[in-house]
Design a binder for these strands. Sequence first.
DNA 1: CGTCCGATTATTGATATTGATATCGATAAC
DNA 2: GTTATCGATATCAATATCAATAATCGGACG
Lengths: 227, 227
Amino acid sequence: MMYFSAQSNARDVKPAKSAATFNALKRDIMLGVLPAGASLTELDLAAYFSCSQGTVREALLQLQEEGLVRRQGHRGTQVSECTEAEAVEMFRVRQQVECSGILRALQMPSRTLIADLKTLFEKMLGAAAAGDELELASLDRDFHRRLFQDAQLPALDPILHRCLVHNHRFKISRSTSPRDLVATAQRHASIIDAVEAGDVGRSCDALRHHIATIVDLGPDVFPDVRQ
Amino acid sequence: MMYFSAQSNARDVKPAKSAATFNALKRDIMLGVLPAGASLTELDLAAYFSCSQGTVREALLQLQEEGLVRRQGHRGTQVSECTEAEAVEMFRVRQQVECSGILRALQMPSRTLIADLKTLFEKMLGAAAAGDELELASLDRDFHRRLFQDAQLPALDPILHRCLVHNHRFKISRSTSPRDLVATAQRHASIIDAVEAGDVGRSCDALRHHIATIVDLGPDVFPDVRQ
DNA sequence: CGTCCGATTATTGATATTGATATCGATAAC
DNA sequence: GTTATCGATATCAATATCAATAATCGGACG
């Protein structure tokens, strides 16, 4: 007999019901099950997810914060578009923000940085081996945000997160066939190596190259990177 | 006798009650009345603004989306910090995003762009003359976002808005004395001139210089701009 | 046949109430 | 004296209900 809750996973301190709605919608939008432009009404979602309108609204507000939906008062909520032009600009923002971040992070990295990155790297390899592209993207966000966390620029984190979500959505929308997810995960190794070595220049270069080569956007987007 | 509502101000098409709470809190945070780190509890705010907890929550979620507060489940809501390092990085993001934006905008500007910018410019001069630094900042956001609107990159707009809000908050926090607001407003004239002339290169340069010289952050932040 | 006005409906906005969770201090056991 | 447990309080989360608003459709009128 068990007198204690089996679900006391220390991870995921957010067992909220709105989170379940949020995650389900996010998944469907990221995978294209809900196409851009699709209308979402609060009461329909509430009925579908067996929760109240307020809970749905909270989930929709979070989705809006990640740029996945667009809410207009009294005119409904629509799934946002995901264009290449926007993806390009977000990749550029990422390059700028993440490279500035790694410069700051390496000046005083937290003691667990390397270990945390390696743990996430292992999980990414696992997700890639399992063919779970969505989980791989989520772990990739965790990886880049963990690295940026040591930059001590918390106000920039939501911006970075937004770019990461849009980039992943764009990448998944472009993946016609089962890509080589393992190679995608493996691409983080050089970043970890450079950070572990404490080499600021090499870390910045590795990160810059990593971001520039996530998807092939043509030679004009990142002129300084030869792919 | 009045047969029509006197409050039918065409402006502010969002007469929502949560907006009033949002605006009041935003004002107090921007002006430093609510200092960084201050705790905000939903029920206290609901009592103060004579509305319900849900309404307050909606306002707080909007504030979080603008980066003015930080919400932690069951641990309250705190006013966020506003550091110089973050402001610097956000200025850099702005330079990147707005300059890319103006390049796209000038390829197919909407017919009302120039007129809209000039209208906002006049309003900025008015707010500056009235000494209303907060209104001037709000109009400055409208100006830059109107310009960016023609870039057709809607997913980037929330990022730009967030940077603008943080930059304005930082600038106001730094303004010890009544600054020369008129000069600040006047600084937008050269951008309008270049855009009206349709000169892409000059527009981009004007915008880049404008952003780099909003506040004096030292020579290392924007090395390519001689102030 | 087209246009304007009004009722209908769909949708979000607001409120009050109840429930869940975390934090902190007091108390008792060791 | 230290630690562990329990309970009180503060706070957020969720639900149900009602109100306000905007889009839509159809008929009357010109």
